[in-house]
């Protein structure tokens, strides 16, 4: 009897490796996507406009990650049965890299922070844009993978 993947240290190590890379990438991308806003906010002229509180970094990584996971899992499921190689890709890239790249804890903490700052409207805008945008991005990734797969099948026909 083979061990379930989540109890197999080789797969756990793979997910950890992917998660380390994904988390580091999230930190970088999140910093880059916030940078233009930081430039605006340090310009002289008094109070920081409320829109600058919008957590752009987390928003961007979550949408990009949802798109990529939709693409990856759809592409893998269309290739048929899960081989060992495909399982490694699914767990390493999907569960590890993309799972680590996206985050729910920051989304929750930032929303809570906006609420305690009295910016309830912005908090609502943030969560609605994230949920609707994330779902749309995920569906987009799935649709593109499905299209690519149909093209691949057409090409492979004589």
């Amino acid at each position: 009897m083979t061990r379930a993947p989540h109890r197999d240290w080789r797969y756990i190590g793979l997910v950890a490796l992917g998660g380390a890379g994904g988390s580091a990438a999230r930190h970088l991308v999140s910093g880059w996507s916030t940078a233009p806003l930081n430039l605006v906010s340090v310009t002289p002229g008094g109070a920081v406009p409320v829109l600058l509180l919008f957590p752009v970094g987390t928003f961007v990584v979550n949408l990009v990650g949802a798109f990529a996971l939709g693409y990856l899992l759809e592409a893998l499921s269309r290739r048929g049965r899960e081989t060992v190689r495909r399982r490694k890709i699914r767990l390493g890239i999907g569960t590890g890299v993309l799972g680590g790249f996206t985050t729910y804890s920051a989304l929750a903490l930032e929303t809570q922070h906006l609420l305690t700052q009295g910016a309830a409207g912005l908090a609502l805008l943030y969560v609605v844009l994230t949920l609707v945008g994330g779902t749309t991005a995920c569906l987009g990734g799935i649709a593109i993978a499905a299209r690519a797969d149909r093209h691949r099948e057409q090409r492979s026909r004589p």
Partner: peptide
């Protein structure tokens, strides 16, 4: 730790 532990992409998928 918390960022890597939680995930938005899988929840959405």
């Amino acid at each position: 730790l918390c960022g890597g532990f939680t995930t938005f992409s899988t929840a959405t998928m």
